[in-house]
């Protein structure tokens, strides 16, 4: 893994100096949470089982940064590096592909975790939401979710034809996945049919794990199996489809 620490450092600096992606990963989720909380407050409401709006939504909001990292940040970052020829430049060094991938994933993982934890802290410290019953469990669930989305992100990076497509398709995909997280629409108020459809979204299952740890209950095994399957399948696809260069 020669070059791994240097590459992590370089990717980190590159990322924090890019204001748009920095905003979306670190600021977007807490900002939206703050705006919605200021609009709806956090008073107990019957539709949320006598819990407040933020109490109900916060577990889902922790997942938003995870979604942004997987669907937008990872593919866009890689496509831009590939389109500019930067990946080709790395390829003619002795750098091993696995070192590049490990460094990239390390930085994206850290950004996703920071975004999720920031949203959590804003909810807890800013709006008085109770601490999760299993804080470590919540963090592990977010980390598991990030691994899932990173695997999906690497596959998308190989499939998107260019950075513009990554932005366009990624935005659509991000909205759909966010909707299924429970952050914007409480899943409890949805019909059985819509809830069944949501179960096809990996983000629904990530939110389910976060929610379970938040409430102190065991992880739903069905969600664990779905996410583990997604990680395995998309890691294989991402590895198989990974490319340094634009198509010739």
């Amino acid at each position: 893994m020669r070059g791994y620490p240097a590459l992590v450092s370089a990717f980190f600096k590159s990322q924090v100096r890019e204001p748009v992606s920095f905003f979306f990963v670190i600021i977007f989720s807490p900002a939206v949470l703050t705006i919605l909380a200021l609009i709806f407050g956090n008073d107990p409401a019957p539709q949320f089982g006598m819990r407040g709006f933020v109490d109900q939504m916060l577990p889902g909001f922790t997942v938003i940064s995870v979604v942004i990292v997987g669907v937008m940040l990872v593919p866009q970052n890689q496509l831009l590096l590939r389109a500019s020829g930067a990946l080709t430049r790395l390829r003619i060094t002795p750098l091993k592909p696995r070192t590049y991938v490990a460094a990239d994933l390390t930085v994206q993982f850290c950004f996703g975790m920071v975004g999720a934890v920031t949203a959590l802290l804003v909810g807890i410290l800013g709006f008085g939401v109770d601490w999760p019953k299993q804080p470590l469990g919540v963090l592990v669930a977010v980390a598991f979710g990030l691994l899932t989305m990173l695997a999906i992100g690497y596959t998308l990076a190989a499939l998107y034809p260019n950075p513009a497509a990554a932005t366009g398709i990624g935005n659509g995909l991000m909205v759909i996945l966010m909707m299924t997280s429970g952050a914007f629409i409480p899943t409890a108020v949805l019909s059985d049919g819509v809830q069944a459809a949501f179960k096809f979204s990996p983000v629904y299952h990530i939110a389910a794990l976060v929610d379970a740890s938040w409430n102190g209950s065991a992880w739903p095994w069905g969600s664990v199996v779905v996410l583990a399957g997604v990680v395995v399948v998309f890691t294989a696809l991402g590895t198989l489809l990974f490319k340094w260069d634009r198509a010739r």
Partner: peptide, 12 residues
């Protein structure tokens, strides 16, 4: 090597 499209990791 120096490639025709001289570029590297951005913002460094």
């Amino acid at each position: 090597s120096q490639l025709q499209e001289s570029t590297t990791i951005p913002r460094l």
